[in-house]
């Protein structure tokens, strides 16, 4: 059976993680193509709803990548992000989705190698965890996209 290729969403903060990802590019490092990056101004901008919805829509792993402790371009964004990740992890536990599917990581703008290493490690970790149970169920039913109007 072919190997399971997890889909991983990485919310990267513009000033550190996103730049580190670009740096990994200029250094021509290699990391799995499973990781898709969404640029946000600060890791503190990632809303718990985005983390939940990513998993609900079928992502197998979600990374919130911000600046190193104390180095956040906006002072406290990364600290708030870390707290929110922990809060959402408790929600996931309640649902029975493995909390390790969601992780907070930090790096500085110059750490291209660290970004690539994290991308590799996290992809392997999620690959070992197997598909997100919600995604698997969703695939089985191929249900129409749920109607979710947020007013």
């Amino acid at each position: 059976m072919e190997t399971f290729e997890p889909v991983i969403v990485a919310f990267c903060c513009h000033y550190c993680a996103y730049t580190a990802a670009d740096m990994a590019g200029t250094m021509r490092l290699d990391y799995p193509a499973n990781v898709k990056i969404v640029r946000v101004p600060c890791s503190g901008k990632v809303d718990p709803i985005h983390m939940m919805k990513a998993l609900e829509l079928g992502a197998d792993g979600v990374l919130v990548a911000g600046c190193l402790e104390g180095d956040c371009h906006f002072k406290t964004g990364n600290v708030k992000a870390a707290r929110r990740v922990t809060y959402v992890q408790t929600q996931l536990e309640e649902i029975g989705v493995e909390p390790q599917r969601l992780a907070m990581v930090t790096m500085s703008a110059g750490m291209g190698t660290r970004f690539a290493a994290i991308a590799n490690e996290f992809t392997e970790q999620i690959r070992k965890l197997g598909p997100n149970p919600v995604a698997a169920a969703r695939k089985a039913q191929a249900a129409p996209a749920p109607v979710a109007q947020v007013n």
Binding site: C42, K45, K53, K80
Partner: peptide, 29 residues
């Protein structure tokens, strides 16, 4: 423009222009 308030607001009353919830959700979808 850091957007911390937008992500903390319990009433979802704050949107950060250029990084609103709608485009981010659309990207995920």
């Amino acid at each position: 423009g850091c957007g911390i308030c937008a992500a903390e607001c319990p009433a979802k009353a704050i949107q950060l222009s250029c990084f609103e919830d709608a485009p981010i959700m659309a990207k995920l979808e």
